[in-house]
């Protein structure tokens, strides 16, 4: 078994340096526009910043993966093809994509460019993954967060490329790349705009010691005094169904797989992805350092559970769909 590769988020150049210094094997980021799934204000990289990032990361032996993982808009796909062209010109180590039209473009225009299939493509089975391998020569698939560890093991035994799985941070309870909850309420979606429950539509209302979170006019949650809060993401709100109010879809929580690294390695997983390009460099530093320790320990066959609940939504963590009890 080879050591797990640690793939870390970089929302800004400073976060990239922090991630590399903290022991990331690879760093991923996006351009400052709608071509990536963290199209948040003030975040991401200009073309020049990416060039500098490549120098910094490569000097430290870390790889740079560029996420162009939203879906190009009909009649307006130029920003996406330009992002792919820039990635090829700057020689990023790989580009992470979901849009099949864009994969086709990258394969035909830049045959030397290494392609990773984004989680946003939601390739959840062997047939789908092998299709992307055969048609576009993808070299790695980021698995959707709908699979259990045994299911991941089964997939790995039937495909010839590497798999990357999410290891820490925000977790979609819905299959990624197939969710329009955000656009139903706000008009902006992950697939089309690279945002989910965007800040522009969020209102926090302090009612004394209580906090009410509101998304585009809908109350998403109410937190009592000192109750741990989460992002105002639609699927992590409290709602009422059958006259009962609670976390119908998912609680405010963060994924954390430090406790099951040995199982993931045994299931043939090659790389771990840390979510959180929208988080600060303080988050990146702490999470990357901890995962560096946990991965190195796992390579020696040791199990090391590191909680990091201080950084987690709701102050708690989960192993999500990796364990069947989550479903």
């Amino acid at each position: 078994m080879t050591k797990l590769e640690l793939v870390c988020p970089a929302g800004t150049p400073a976060a990239l340096r922090v991630a590399v210094d903290a022991g990331a094997d690879a760093v991923y980021m996006g351009f400052r526009d709608e071509t990536n799934a963290r199209n948040f204000p003030g975040l991401n990289f200009s073309v020049d910043e990416l060039a500098e990032a490549l120098d910094y990361a490569h000097a430290a032996g870390a790889k740079v993966l560029l996420a162009v993982n939203t879906y190009a808009t009909a009649g307006h796909s130029e920003p996406w093809t330009r992002a792919v062209d820039n990635a090829a010109r700057l020689k990023v180590d790989a580009i992470i994509m979901a849009d099949i039209g864009l994969l086709e473009y990258a394969r035909s225009s830049h045959p030397g460019l290494r392609l990773h299939l984004s989680v946003q493509a939601s390739a959840s089975n062997t047939v789908a993954i092998n299709h992307y391998v055969k048609e576009f020569g993808i070299r790695r698939v980021v698995l959707p967060r709908v699979l259990t560890v045994p299911e991941i093991r089964a997939i790995n035994s039937r495909i010839d490329i590497k798999t990357e799985v999410f290891a820490f941070g925000g977790m979609c309870p819905m299959a990624e790349g197939r969710c329009s909850l955000s656009s139903y309420i706000t008009g902006k979606s992950p697939n089309m705009n690279g945002v989910c429950s965007p800040a522009s539509h969020v209102t926090y209302i302090q009612q004394g010691q209580n906090l009410k979170t509101n998304l585009a006019g809908f109350t998403i949650n109410k937190f009592g005094p000192n109750e741990q809060a989460g992002y105002p993401t639609l699927c992590k709100g409290r709602f009422t169904a059958n006259d009962e109010t609670g976390y119908l879809f998912e609680e405010p929580t963060s994924l954390n797989v430090t406790g099951i690294l040995l199982e993931l390695m045994e299931a043939g997983v090659s790389a771990l992805k840390i979510e959180g390009r929208q988080r600060s460099k303080a988050y990146v530093r702490e999470v990357v350092q901890n995962f560096r320790v946990a991965i190195d320990a796992a390579a020696r066959g040791e199990r090391m559970v590191i909680e990091m609940d201080n950084l987690s939504e709701g102050g708690q963590h989960t192993t999500g769909a990796y364990s069947r009890k989550w479903m």
């Binding site: 929302g11 800004t12 150049p13 400073a14 976060a15 948040f40 204000p41 003030g42 975040l43 965007p198 800040a199 522009s200 969020v202 209102t203 926090y204 209302i205 302090q206 906090l211 937190f223 005094p225 000192n226 109750e227 741990q228 809060a229 989460g230 405010p252 929208q278 600060s280 460099k281 201080n310 987690s312 939504e313 709701g314 102050g315």
Partner: peptide, 23 residues
């Protein structure tokens, strides 16, 4: 998340400021 910080108003503006300072 831990409620030590509370924010109100234009969240997009706040995120932009936070991300800019953090960059």
């Amino acid at each position: 998340f831990s409620r030590r910080l509370s924010v109100e108003g234009d969240m997009e503006a706040l995120l932009t400021l936070r991300n800019a300072l953090d960059s």
